[in-house]
Simulated assay, not measured.
Amino acid sequence: MKLNRQKILDFFKKSENRATVILKDKSKANDTIKDALGKAVTNKGDLEGVWSKMVLLFAVSKDYVNGDYTEIPKKSIIAILGGLVYFLSPIDIVPDFVPVLGFIDDIFVLNLVYRQVLKDLEKYKDWKDAQIKIIGDVDGSSAS
Rank of each mutant, 00 (worst) to 15 (best):
S52F: 14
K13R: 13
D10H: 06
E16I: 12
F108G: 00
S144V: 13
D46A: 10
N43I: 08
E48S: 07
R5W: 01
T32Q: 05
T32V: 04
K74F: 15
V94R: 04
G45A: 08
V21S: 07
F11R: 11
L112S: 03
L88M: 07
K39V: 04
D68N: 15
K133T: 06
L57A: 07
F103M: 00
D126F: 11
V113F: 07
D139V: 14
D46R: 00
K13Y: 14
S52W: 12
P99W: 09
L37G: 07
F108M: 01
S15T: 01
A19I: 10
K24Y: 03
I78Y: 11
K2A: 09
W51R: 00
T70Y: 06
D105Y: 10
D137A: 12
Y64F: 15
I8F: 01
N111I: 01
V21G: 00
G67H: 04
K13A: 13
V55F: 05
Q6I: 13
L9G: 02
G67T: 04
L47Y: 01
A143I: 12
L57S: 07
Q131N: 10
M54G: 05
D105P: 07
Y69V: 08
D46Q: 02
V117T: 03
F58G: 06
L84V: 06
N30F: 12
F103C: 00
T70S: 14
I134S: 10
L110E: 05
L118G: 02
E48Y: 07
S52A: 08
V94N: 05
K62H: 14
K123S: 12
T20P: 00
G82W: 08
Y69L: 10
S144Q: 11
N17G: 04
N66E: 15
L121D: 13
I104R: 04
D31V: 08
D105C: 08
F87Q: 02
A36F: 05
K2S: 05
N30Y: 06
E71Y: 12
K44M: 08
I91W: 14
G102K: 01
G140V: 11
P73V: 13
